[in-house]
Design a protein around this nucleic acid. Structure first.
Lengths: 352, 352
DNA sequence: CATGTATATGTTAACGCTAACAGATTTGCC
DNA sequence: GGCAAATCTGTTAGCGTTAACATATACATG
């Protein structure tokens, strides 16, 4: 047995015409039945559905989209799929879009602006109903394309800047400030920073900027910093932490701020393995609030970037604008990241 | 400033005709230039490209696909995005497709067969050039659709069964057997199993079957088992491990086999936290070979499911068949998962 | 210079579907 | 019974692009 369940294993793909002939009504009526649009008598409806099922007909959305100039796709353009943050955003987006006719299509840029431009071009060439794209920083060409596309654009994850149209996210600068303030308030003074070597991760950069800004106001500065790229983040967190603690033995650090929870977790495990008192001797904090932290021996301090919520809000904006095309647009939603102190960011015991 | 860089912020979307008029050649020639197809003089080529850029024209793939009946999309249908295994498969797929005209489109089923059927129907209605779908188990309707689609279908992750067309993956039954054998060879006897409560995760089921089969041959059986659903896998791994060890104190277990590395890691952390000697007092093993295991205090024994490689091989099959449509098909590639003993599956010291 | 070959451009007719409108049939109601 | 309204079905003409073929121009070659 090679293929098909029908009688003729025909090479020619099925069209509305086939269903129309099989059920004895016009193509238009078949189209109406298959889309639940307009009035069709119950008799013909079931006749048509029966014929369609029997033939194994699957409508051709390409043709449908062209004819109706409605393409129910939402382009979602994100830098990466592998760090757990964007899958969660996707979850939020799906939660909303699953209740609509809209379907997300994902493109990944690997944090490369020129790749983002290409992906965007590819996506727009499908004439989607909307675009959800990570970040506010894009090439001029990309911005121009989005501006001219005539569809709702939602830039997500970040609100520190000028969006093209709408934006949903948190202020990373503010997140950095908030964390710095909490660390200072807890009495830590010699602070190390560990992050990714990514000049193009603008959000990490903004957090860093906000962070140092507040330190500066308190007369402090980053005592040491270290950056990595590639490899297992957990293992890198370990290595970097070890290296940093080693080289600061004379004047030891009392806090380590990690640019993401994964390396933070690595650092935490390193400290515990080596009998370092956390948070007494040294405090730790990451960023993101990824769920797996719950299973760690001690809960890492972190800041939740509201990822699911960002996805939901972005999708909602698109859905609303698709339903009501002449709504205003330009909506900006700034979510407030919550700081979770966990077990690793606690006021040091005052000397008695 | 509201939108667009062009002169007329026209409402009507741009078409080939606009570029054609702007550059003074026929639509056909514009089409040829934009697709690099056929001979076009250097003069007109640049004239057209110039006009297209100036207008900000983006080709309409919907119309192009309909006219050429070539849709360069590959439908990728997977159960989940959130467990790190499918993102890696996606990486493999992208590695190959990035060198072709093909573009992946992802659909997520959440392990629900009826959802898989819907997603498949949606995908097929875009008339993709091929389908990559996880698993060999599908509803009858889904199988029929794929059989009748007339495009290459690659079922991935599993080769224990009858594929519709091609298949790439590992034998999970064999993986389970292999792990069981290694555990037995190492001298462990009282074995507990910890997994997900998912009757629809056929691959986990097959591993379990293979596992118990070999135990049976050695006159052993699973001493205890526990299943979870939802929540942070790492935390669940801890909890389940604790529960299981607690209730088997009289006749203690000496090995725990986890259905995935995440809960395995949780179990490992639990054991280490509680001063349990791993692998002397108790051995541990997971499944998958996820990269982050590298950062754990001790390396968990696991079995690599060759995820990137599976993605690459599947994409290659599709790419080959798209290039050469009358190639045979029906290819089946069984990869051999490698068993990594790590630090948690070691022959117990023989009593002196 | 006629003729063939390569190069460059244009013309026509789909691709499979749906919007918009036009008929046809039934129903309600005075 | 007659006429409007409601219900159902069909016809026509694209949607924006490309395949296939037709035409035009340049460039050799004997």
């Amino acid at each position: 047995m090679s293929q098909g369940s029908g009688k003729t294993p025909s090479k020619r793909p099925l069209t509305l015409r086939d269903v129309s002939e099989a059920s004895g009504v016009s193509e238009m009526t078949v189209s109406r039945v298959l889309r639940n649009r307009g009035d069709v008598s119950e008799a013909t409806r079931s006749k048509v559905l029966e014929a369609a099922r029997a033939l194994g007909y699957v409508p051709n959305k390409i043709a449908g989209a062209l004819a109706s100039s409605r393409v129910n796709l939402v382009a979602v353009i994100i830098p990466s799929m592998s760090n757990m943050v964007f899958p969660e955003v996707m979850t939020g987006i799906s939660q909303i879009l699953d209740d609509t006719e809209l379907q997300p299509v994902v493109g990944v840029t690997n944090y490369k602006p020129e790749r983002e431009e290409t992906v965007l071009y590819q996506m727009l060439s499908w004439r989607p109903s909307g675009v959800i794209i990570a970040g506010l920083e894009h090439t001029e060409a990309a911005k121009a394309m989005m501006g001219a596309a005539g569809i709702p654009i939602v830039e997500i994850m970040d609100t520190d800047g000028e969006p093209i149209d709408s934006a949903v996210g948190i202020s990373h600068r503010r997140a950095g400030r908030k964390m710095a303030q909490a660390i200072i308030d807890a009495g830590y003074k010699r602070i190390g920073f560990l992050g990714t070597k990514m000049p193009l991760d603008h959000r990490a950069r903004k957090r860093f900027e906000g962070f140092t800004e507040i330190l500066a106001k308190a007369g402090l500065e980053i005592a040491d910093s270290e950056f990595y790229s590639g490899g297992s983040a957990l293992a890198k967190g370990r290595e970097m932490t070890e290296a940093m603690l080693q080289r600061n033995q004379e004047e030891p650090l009392d806090f380590l701020y990690y640019s993401n929870d994964m390396i933070g977790a690595g650092g935490l495990l390193y400290c515990l393995d080596n009998g370092i008192d956390v948070p007494g001797e040294i405090g730790l904090a990451g960023f993101n609030g990824i769920e797996f932290l719950d299973g760690l021996p001690r809960k890492l301090a972190t800041m939740d970037a509201c990822r699911v919520e960002v996805g939901r809000a972005a999708a909602e904006i698109i859905a609303k604008r698709v339903e009501n095309p002449d709504a205003p647009g330009g909506e900006i939603i700034t979510l407030e990241p919550s700081l979770e102190f966990g077990d690793t960011l606690k006021r040091k015991k005052k000397p008695l």
